[in-house]
Amino acid sequence: MNPMKMLREMRAIKDLLTDAEGIARSMGDEQPAAEHLLLAAFDLPDGSADRVMRRFGLDRDRLRAAIVEQHAAALVAAGLRPDVADQLSDAPALEPPTGSGIYRSSPSAQEAFQRAGAMARSARRPLAGAHIVAAVAGMEHGTVAQLLERLGIERSALAAAAADELERPAS
């Protein structure tokens, strides 16, 4: 890879991780998890995550709302009254990240990011949003898996759509 391309990719990855952290904190979570990385992938310049997710009727705002609904559904399953669960699942935002210090993320975000990076490297192409989608679709358990199940989206279908998107020639 030529140095300019490498620099652009490094910048895109830094923006992706910073964006994921900002999204997590805006949703009341201290550290980004796989679902926040997926939301951040919508804004990657290649646009492939957005295109894949829209095939399943999800734009960034709809996915974000579905994550909050997923938290509420889990709280109801834990025994909270639905009205209280709704109120508590939409957590107030934490202060935005300062951008200094060590970058911290949850294990699910690390796993998704590592899976996506491995896919991109094995295909010898820059990391794209669809790699993140494929990576989270490959995770059998966790918030994203539960969320997809609740929305009636097969993980295998999502992974196939991401693979299809990645095979398209770059525009």
Partner: peptide, 13 residues
């Protein structure tokens, strides 16, 4: 899976 999802949501809370 449902039990773990409840645990995650309660831990978040």
């Amino acid at each position: 899976s449902a039990a773990f999802a409840a645990v995650v949501a309660l831990r978040r809370l």
